[in-house]
Amino acid sequence: MNLLEIKNLKMDFGKDAGALRAIDDVSLAIGEGETVCLVGESGCGKTVTALSIGKLVPTPPAHYVDGEILLNGRDVLKMSSRQLREIRGGVVSYVFQEPGAALNPVFRIGNQIKESLKLHRPDLGAPGTASARSGMARHRAGAVPGAPSRRKALDAEVIRLLKLVGIPAPESRLRNYPFEMSGGMQQRVMIAMALASEPKLLVADEPTTALDVTIQAQILDLLSDLKQRLGMAILLITHNLGIVGDMADRVAVMYAGQIVELSPARELLRRPLHPYTRALMASVPKLRGDADRLSAIPGNVPRIGNFPPGCRFAPRCPMAKPECSSKNPDLVEVETGRFVRCPFWKTE
């Protein structure tokens, strides 16, 4: 059984006549400990798909039409709000794009991490729990001698987490306000918050977009390192194909609310099949090469609710044929593990 299985998810914004389909028939599975990248241009539905895993898209305006999201075999879309609160953080944690805005400006970062601990780790330093449990917590927290009060145990755990995400001098840092930290440090705090609840799946929604390039590399290294050590699965959302090769086991490419290509990362990078993926890869600037202009995909992602008939990429596709604008092709497995939503994938 996969950790996460999204099956034929269809989601609208609005209802009835005014409904706009934001996610159209998206299926995606993530196994335990696997890293999947979700790639696509802005506005193609990546974030909405990711937030749906925790049912975090506000309903209304969102409206789930069809499909299911199985997390540990249970359908998230059918959960009560209490069950939802348990899986949020408990099974799936989020790291967002702008760490500066995702941290509450009026709280010290230590307290924000503690919020996560209090919600999902009631065992920490709880009075009267079995000694084995508190002993384990103490061991993880780096051994506080004597019977630690809950407060001490929480502090120790926060320090352990801050160390884990590579924040120097965590003992003094936990008393910092978010604005006293740099963007990279803030993002590390966000990751520490996400890890505090010991999730099985970490959803990182463009975690490096707001950071400068050197910090980006550090954060990505941190994520792969944590994945190795903690064995959690990662769903990494990005519009940067450069990241994909370093991180991903598999890649899902989204376009206009649909997955257009799903493939093991290595093969996708070596030989992209869908014309959209090819165009995306062509627009990554190369270090060597004589092109003095960056190549770009002409046109824009069609606005939601204004999708062209037939293949949604057809109007921008360099290899479009007349029949492309009449029928939207299905996502077909063309080689083992490789799915493509284009009948002309063999065309060079």
């Binding site: 939802l84 944690s93 400006p105 609840s197």
Partner: peptide, 19 residues
């Protein structure tokens, strides 16, 4: 975003308002 982040941690509506 920090409100969404708190929701994503599994915080209840009332605690999000209060905290």
């Amino acid at each position: 975003p920090f409100v969404l982040a708190a929701r994503a941690l599994g915080q209840t509506h009332l605690k999000v308002i209060a905290r």
